[in-house]
Design a protein around this nucleic acid. Structure first.
Length: 818
DNA sequence: TATAGGCATACGAACATTATCTA
DNA sequence: TAGATAATGTTCGTATGCCT
């Protein structure tokens, strides 16, 4: 046996079972040779923890340990035995506890063994039994994903395998580049034929420059590979992919669409999706509604999933369709082809090269998006110690949980269990808890606004006040903390002696982020900057998700009191800033959660800095108020119903004249393009004192609507169908439009975007609503009264143009309708 | 098996009130 | 003028998507 050292980057991992032994497989890329190697590790076995009751004597504990060691159970599938039991001391809720680490032979025995041991009376509970084996491996072996790792290995001649002897991570090496890997994106075009979805085009584009479209029809497209039939398309795909030998397969919604079709068609034709160079097959599995297509050593990244769960909050496009996302993130021009175009082209065998071109374009966009998100995906993957396959499919909750589990292992802490279903129901029944404070704005146009906000308000509070499940109302500082660290609106206080687990790991994140931000300031290399920025961003989103995670019913670290304490301190601090600002003679214009808008007679940096210092000198811990910037104008509109200004909707003009719009219909995707554009234009004109022009602009729009000169595309309203059509209580316009489309034979799923138009035919608005593709006229009165007037009238009112909404016999009429 | 809550707004549904029509 | 019916107004709940 030769001993050897292999250095490389880990980007995939799984396990196989051989002779009743688990064998972890680690997929590693050698950064120098760019060769991939599969490393095997036979040294790791599955385990979970048994927590014996605290009151057990040493002898009783010893007997329990023996009992577990000797456990044996026979059934048809064989004998269930324990591999070994080790006594360990672990931290549970700030307490040191004696636990038994119960090791099993193979991973699937973990839940079986736990179930058998549940009846033992000496056992208080079980921990960490639901952490997947390969995830456990990544954590326990301190694998640094996308960073250089060093493996001592030996080669086994008989099998040709490399076995891992020891692992060392190079924590200071930078995260690797996109260009280190080979990437391949594919896309399918399909048609529905006799109730089946059939593949007619498959495009493949990869990072080495390969650009192919496979079809069984001669279409004249330059990159086309023409084959016999649908079966051959799938086979040819496999052939090309195998030859190109990528490390990553990129799709846009491949989990739910492309692989779904592929799996079905491949099964029909009796083909295996064996695309990997090491002979592994793709497996397609579903857990509830969630579907995944996976292949060891050929990592499938579904970009749509990442966009949907992680990036959605930052996306502005109406829908998350590939074209929209590519346009927003890459600035790529749209090539829109609808399903009916495709099926028409296919039936008539005309324009097929256009469809082929479109198919390739989709793969090109997917590949480009893959490059675009790589820095973020790899940073997150590294931070939370999860495979890129899992990271791109993770929700915020999963990310926080994974990060916490990793840190807990580092600190010799056992994490709490996931809640049972009943427990989750109980938590949800507690109802919503009190959240942030929002200052009601005064209506009107304000000048010279200085904007302040707290840096990472909730993480700062959790760290500063040591908010954690284990630090609430501790006995050790009953006298002191009750006075010094009491929650403003509640009777809780938090320990001041021992740092809680969550505050301590949050603190690490915050400090690391500060450190990276400092390095960013000194870095010139753009490639490096992008990586560092992605790293600080990953830290930011994980830190910000912690508070929400503590209040999430499905969380391992759920605590109602911790969550309400966090928001309570938040309200306390923002009120403090508002009060002090008033005392200093500032006029408070607005504020939301962690921000305060103050208006000044004129820009005065001396005053601003003095106020900032004054506040920060009195803030405890790492609480920090920051000066965000100065705005020459700010517009706050009247609420439609009730008194006062509308919260969470305003427009600001910065010193360079840029307009920032928050909350108004302009930024809402469930309003027509016409309404959004009109509102934006009106805001723009009014904020530059062009009142008459603004009025004329609106008059012009109304006129165009009356004379039907507005193209119907601008009147399409996008709304998300959030659930299945049958579960709607209320027949809203988009729901009715869908119902009518279903009557025509179309199918809809929850989560789909619905584009509809309010047509002229019908009684109520819902009656008039039709899917955009079926609408060929529109109701001008609806668009005037329900789309244009509402979005501009209160903005005009805010700048003092009152005579707008003259009501006449309760039918809305106004100066625009001369 | 959506990290949290706060907020504005639209529209439907159900009901209350008023206007209009009829006998 | 009582009673029926349509039109209009009010209130409430559902639904969506934003803000921090």
């Amino acid at each position: 046996m030769n001993s050897d050292e292999i250095s490389g980057i880990v980007f995939d991992c799984d396990y196989i079972v051989e002779g009743n032994k688990p064998l972890v497989r680690v997929f590693v890329k050698d950064a120098k040779t760019k060769q991939n190697i599969v490393l095997h590790d036979s040294s790791f076995c599955p385990y979970f923890y048994v927590v014996p009751y605290l009151y057990l004597t040493d002898e009783q504990a010893f007997l329990l340990k023996k009992k577990i060691e000797l456990f044996e159970h026979d059934d048809i599938s064989g004998t269930l035995k324990v591999k070994s039991v080790k006594e360990e001391e672990k931290t549970m809720g700030l307490q040191k506890r004696r636990v038994f680490r119960v090791e099993c032979f193979i991973p699937k025995e973990v839940p079986l063994l736990k179930a058998h041991l549940e009846k033992e009376e000496e056992i208080e509970g079980f921990r960490e039994y639901d952490i997947l084996f390969y995830k456990r491996y990544l954590i326990d072996r301190n694998i640094e994903l996308f960073r250089q790792m060093h493996f001592k290995v030996h080669h086994e001649k008989k099998t040709g395998r490399f076995f891992v002897d020891s692992i060392k991570a190079d924590k200071n090496s930078p995260l690797v580049d996109f260009s280190l890997f080979r990437w391949l994106a594919f896309d399918l075009e399909t048609i529905e034929e006799s109730g089946k979805t059939k593949i007619i085009f498959a495009s493949i584009v990869d990072s080495s420059g390969c650009k192919t479209v496979i079809t069984c029809y001669r279409n004249g497209y330059e990159h086309a590979v023409v084959v016999e039939d649908e079966k051959s398309i799938i086979e040819k795909m496999g052939e090309i992919i195998k030859k190109q030998n990528p490390d990553f397969i990129l799709t846009y919604n491949g989990d739910n669409f492309d692989f779904n079709v592929l799996e079905d068609r491949a099964k029909t034709f009796g083909i295996k999706l064996q695309w990997s160079s090491i002979g592994e097959n793709f497996t397609y599995f579903s857990k509830g509604a969630r579907k995944k297509a996976q292949c060891f050593g050929l990592v499938h990244i579904d970009i749509y999933k990442f966009v949907f769960s992680i990036m959605r909050g930052t996306i502005k496009s109406e829908t998350l369709k590939l074209n929209n996302i590519a346009k927003e993130l890459l600035g790529d021009e749209k090539k829109d082809v609808s399903y009916s175009d495709i099926s028409h082209a296919w039936r008539t065998k005309t324009n097929l090269s256009k469809i082929a071109d479109y198919c390739v374009h989709d793969s090109v966009l997917t590949l480009k998006l893959g490059e675009h998100i790589f820095a973020n995906l790899s940073s997150l993957s590294n931070l939370v110690c999860q495979l890129p396959f899992d990271t791109c499919r993770a929700s915020y909750g999963t990310l926080v949980e994974a990060f916490a589990i990793r840190k807990a292992h580092e600190k010799n802490i056992i994490v709490p269990n996931k809640p049972s279903n009943e427990e989750m129901v109980k938590r949800k029944q507690k109802g919503m808890f009190k959240g942030a404070f929002v200052y009601s704005p005064k209506v009107g146009l304000k000048k010279n606004i200085a904007l302040f906000d707290f840096r990472s308000l909730y993480p700062s509070i959790i760290i500063t006040h040591n908010i954690d499940i284990d630090t609430i109302n501790c006995k050790c500082c009953l006298k002191t903390a009750k006075k010094k660290n009491k929650v403003p609106d509640y009777d809780f206080y938090f320990c001041q002696k021992q740092k809680g687990f969550i505050p301590s790991i949050l603190e690490e994140i915050i400090f690391l982020r500060v450190k990276i931000k400092k390095i960013i300031k000194e870095t010139r290399d753009t490639k490096m900057l992008k990586k560092l920025d992605a790293q600080q961003y990953a830290l930011k989103i994980v830190a910000n998700a912690f508070y929400g995670y503590m209040g999430f019913a499905g969380s391992r670290f759920y605590d109602y009191r911790a969550a309400v304490s966090t928001t309570s301190f938040g309200r306390h601090y923002i009120h403090k800033v508002i009060e002090e600002a008033k005392e200093e003679g500032f006029r408070v214009v607005y504020g939301d959660t962690d921000s305060v808008f103050l208006s000044l007679p004129k820009k005065n940096m001396k005053k601003i800095n003095k106020f900032l210092d004054h506040i920060n000198n009195s803030l405890p811990g790492i609480m920090d108020l920051e000066y965000e910037g100065f705005f020459t104008k700010g517009l706050f509109a009247q609420k439609k119903h009730g008194e006062g200004g509308a919260k969470k909707r305003y427009a600001l003009v910065d010193e360079n004249g840029n307009i920032i719009i928050k909350g108004f219909e302009k930024v809402r995707r469930d309003w027509s393009v016409l309404a959004r554009q009109t509102q934006e234009k009106v805001l723009e004109l009014l904020l530059s004192d062009k009142t008459e022009e603004a009025k004329n602009y609106v008059r012009d729009v109304i006129d165009k609507l009356k004379t039907k000169k507005v193209p119907i595309e601008e009147l399409v309203i996008n709304t998300n169908l959030k659930k299945s059509i049958s579960s709607y209580e209320q027949m809203a316009p988009h729901v009715m439009a869908v119902k009518k489309a279903i009557a025509r034979g179309m199918k809809f799923k929850g989560g789909q975007n619905i584009a509809y138009v309010v047509t002229a035919k019908g009684k109520s608005i819902s009656d008039k609503a039709q899917l955009a593709e079926f609408a060929n006229d529109y109701d001008s009165q609806y668009y005037i009264n329900n789309q244009i007037i509402p979005v501009v009238s209160r903005i005009f009112e805010a700048v003092g143009v009152q005579e707008l909404s003259l009501t006449d016999n309760s039918k809305q009429k106004n100066i625009f309708e001369y």
